[in-house]
Nucleic acid binder design. Sequence first.
DNA 1: GAGCACTGC
Length: 726
Amino acid sequence: MASLPILQFEEKIVETVEQNPVVVVIGETGSGKSTQLSQILHRHGYTKSGIIVVTQPRRVAAVSVARRVAQELDVRLGEEVGYAIRFEDRTSERTHIKYLTDGVLLRESLSNPDLNQYSVIILDEAHERSLNTDVLMGLVKRLIKMRASNLKILITSATLDGEKVSKFFSNCPILNVPGKLFPVEILHSKDRPTSYLDSCLKTAIDIHVREPEGDVLIFLTGQDDIEKLVSMLEDRVRSLQEGSCMDAIILPLHGSLPPEMQVRVFSPPPPNCRRFIVSTNIAETSLTVDGVVYVIDAGYVKQRQYNPSTGMYSLDVVQISKVQANQRAGRAGRTRPGKCYRLYPSKVYQDEFLDVSVPEIQRSSLAGSVLYLKSLDLTDIDILKFDFLDPPSAESLRDALKQLYLIDAIDESGSITTFGRTMAELPLEPSLSRTLMEANEYGCLSQALTVVAMLSAETMLLQGRSKSTEKKRKHPSVDLPDGSGWGDHIQLLQIFECWDENNYNINWCKDNDLQVRGMMFVKDVRKQLAQIMQKIAKGSLDVRTKKRRKESRQDYRNLRMALCVGYANQLAERMLRHNGYRTVGFKSQLVQVHPSSVLKADEEGTLPDYVVYHELIATSRPYMRNVCAVEMAWVTPILEKLEKLDTNKLSGGSAHIEEVADIKQTEILDKKVDGDAVPDDRETILQYEHGADVSFLSVYGKQIGQALNLQIQNKTGLESNLKVDI
DNA sequence: GAGCACTGC
């Protein structure tokens, strides 16, 4: 332990913490900050007046770091040193060093806003800027004003971010703790390659042929590219002359890979063999692969973004930040000196890369966070002026308020309602919390609990789908229920009910291509939600899953009604004469039911007039994912409410949100239009040829005189206008 | 008739 760099700074750290309520600690990889800061402060008496708590953005990190600290202090995990993550609280009355996920600390502060039991709060990995850590930073800033005498805050961050965080906390001191990494030589390419995959391939083979042993880690954006490069590498390696270089193992690594495939990267290679790990940014922070000496960094990452004016998410390939680039490079220097090949010029790194990635708070829907903050009753703070390190846009806050109003979480003046308070207690998106509460009124709580729990685990349910396994499986699970035509929520309910009928048999999951881990998670979530609902209702609710199936002609009416109330802000109306939909309540968007949906059309081939959806996502087109058929009569009250909506009033009058004029107009470079522009008022989707590397979702055309006025929507829902002569 | 990076309560 004595070799950890941070320990040489022990006196300095203690002294600085002694004299300041907030300290920023910049600790590079390998500095030991995550395990040592808490122990240093413990040694100097900070656990006498309370618990030292350390937050982590990820569950595995909270658990593994706690385990290490317990080992180092030679105590049993869960006694003096413990951790708390969702579904798992391993702390006791004797715990004085506690690791937890940032989300758990936020939940705790709901019932104890002053966090009185803690003498020190360490927000670790703050540079990752998770939504929860950002909210915590705002809360903690407020907390030190109230508890200045007996609370110490430490924020750990990255070099490029330290100044900004310090400024946010009234210019608090910054401590630098060097890391313990071997030097990594950075090699930039002269130009940006025209094809990243080809360039990756060439660089990888060059390393393989020329460089001494050591594994190669390659960062790409997603599963598709990874699979392509893996097969390219396999071909190329096979064609190398036998004996001319060492053997090679090529491993893909991404999140949708089944766990048993993911852990393959942890087994060391046989002698005289080099591994190529082709990965998403999962290997940047979440997984650490040992033995890596060479990193190839294409400089891109796939990021999810939310557009508050359309309510639409998109998944975009964007440039990484400098912090990310450095993090990736650092992966080469864990065991010995390494090399990082960047497939972009150093000028691009310097001039184009952001210092830090755009924080999640500026890329997400904020309904949940705003409701959470409202429920804290911070009378001294106006939510809309809440002090964030990077404030979200006014538009995003307005969107959040609108959502909350439509589901009765706040009233027309923006104050939280009793409904809203209950909703904030549930670890769910507000729309789903609202659904549960409504379902309770209609006597279908048990079903709603199942649906909501299934939605929380949706991405973990299906078995990893790579193209190769797809081929093998000609018969896609025919035995699963189909939602009886009402849509995906009902199908999710029916799937869980089937599993319930099969007594939660693990083999049933396997037979039906469902991940066991995912289904177990659903069970846990459902149980947790049921407990919270019981507590709220203070009576006994019927949350049991019913062991009877298929009452004939069950139309799930009550459940669908409850969903309609919860998803008031996620409503779409079918267009006349075709099966496209228009979103209601947002700037009107033409959207389609996702092809994977089980929603059924009637005998005439027509889809229901109204649906609610769980998510709007722009991929090749804007799609509604997870839809449920609802009825006109249930929609009317929502439309009435939308009519009365006054967002200025929702923002509490005093805090008038200023209009933001930062909607970026997409530059149209090429004005060639292909396709049939029908010269009438009907929206017509055209194919649009363009010169910029922006992909457009749709083009609405309208003829005016000899010109065609086009309204063009790009992937993130931003719109631009273009006039074309015809 | 598509396809989705990563977390978390």
